[in-house]
Design a binder for these strands. Structure first.
Lengths: 247, 247
DNA sequence: CACGATCGTTCCGTATCGTGGAACGATTCT
DNA sequence: AGAATCGTTCCACGATACGGAACGATCGTG
């Protein structure tokens, strides 16, 4: 067990009851004032606590609330996005899915199956590096440049021989994605699999995830081509973004 | 800054998005597996995380929710207690209310009006030190002795000339409250105001709040006297406690 | 089934990090 | 004004957290 983490949580438990200052907390948890002050400074730094009206009393902070609320947020997003995915699957004729970014990976939370007899596997529950697949690229296209460059400075894994791992090529792709509003990828994640994705934004205009359609390369994107499918997906993602902004 | 606390919160942020195992978290936060495993074990020990279905994936835990969630629990209690208060107001002929403890104060959440033409003001929304008023005293009567003594070691405020602030007298009161199951107070909170309260317990038998009846001193408790009113209030509080335990 | 890859768990030597007493200015109370 | 208490910061030091390595368990593939 890591003692200082346990101590930090003892402090949080004391504060969950009522706001308090350093000395009172020190008495409540039985630690020296200086230890408590240092742990509080750290907890304040990670937004787990904040000050009552910029005074010297601390209370449970918004950051802690967000840690527990985000899980719910993802769950509610899964529920909210489903009708959009069902419509998209019907309209594109292929499986549709939704994923959210987490650090340097894209987490695929939910997938709605293709109406066609030949299905692709279910990728929900899977975590994929950002540069593998169009959803991650859509998200990354809206990152600040220094975040993109930090990601690209690490060795990039190739899932297939078609996976693009060249930094310059990726940067060019990201610019194109921002211009056209979607990303199309063939066989970079898995051989025989093609996918088109578009970004979902939250109410503050920040990229929050991506909706995608994917199918076997032999029939997808097919006659419609990436641009047509791209527009359909971007349309669905845009409607979902608008709906989220309104709620 | 305490590095291990910061690292623990980095892990929590990763888990706030989606459940994950040790290795995935390690990659997300950029720490060695053994470090992550040790921090996770600690976070699990303080209920900040728990396992998904006793497997090897972790998620945000109930303990973290509880650090932030007391307000929500209070909201559902307000809904649940209302029929009990309505009945009590009808039976006692006075206003009935409910409050929950928060640290060293009693928070009055809801009040149902007296059926009589002369009303007392609405105290819902008010926070009052524990020793002021019978509800706080009922809660305090069920605190561990060292918690009581810690409270009493601080200077106690008097709201009126009748407010009891002597530690010995308060300790005697608490013993009497535990014995008879209610508390009766005259003009200690406000002049001309009398009140009788009884404790509400949660499903673990811990004191969670108090139900009270209050009215103008000139007519309350009246012919019934504190003991009769006390029994009526304790009866209502006991029924509410049983109903909470059953749900 | 065998084997390789990956996972989660545990151990242990070590050095880094967290500690707590003390100092001190700021604030509060009498 | 003076005493008490608060919150903040410093620093020597050793306790604690660290991370590489080992290993059994599990999973995926041929």
């Amino acid at each position: 067990m890591v003692q200082s983490v346990e101590r930090a949580f003892a402090i949080l438990r004391a504060l969950s009851v009522a706001p308090a200052g350093v000395s009172e907390i020190a008495e409540l948890v039985g630690l020296p004032k200086s230890t408590v002050a240092r742990l509080l400074a750290t907890l304040e730094g990670v937004d787990a606590v904040d000050r009552v009206e910029e005074g010297s009393r601390y209370q449970i902070g918004d950051g802690l609330v967000e840690l527990t609320g985000s899980t719910d947020a993802s769950a509610s997003m899964v529920v909210a996005v489903r009708p959009h995915l069902l419509q998209l699957a019907a309209r594109s004729g292929e499986a549709a899915g939704f994923g959210v970014p987490q650090g340097y990976t894209m987490h695929y939370l939910v997938q709605v199956e293709s109406p066609q007899p030949v299905q692709v596997r279910d990728y929900s529950g899977l975590a994929v590096p950002m540069h593998i697949g169009p959803s991650g690229l859509c998200v990354m296209a809206h990152w600040p440049l220094e975040d993109v460059q930090r990601y690209l400075s690490r060795p990039l894994e190739a899932y297939t021989s078609a996976t693009v791992v060249d930094s310059t090529a990726i940067l060019d792709r990201l610019a194109e994605i921002r211009r056209v509003g979607y990303a199309a990828v063939d066989e970079e994640f898995a051989e025989g699999l093609s996918s088109v994705a578009a970004p979902v934004f939250d109410s503050n205009g920040h990229v929050a995830g991506a909706i995608h359609v994917h199918g076997p390369t032999y029939r997808f994107p097919g006659k419609k081509g990436p641009a047509d499918i791209g527009r359909i997906v971007a349309d669905a993602a845009g409607r979902f973004s608008s709906r989220r902004a309104a709620s």
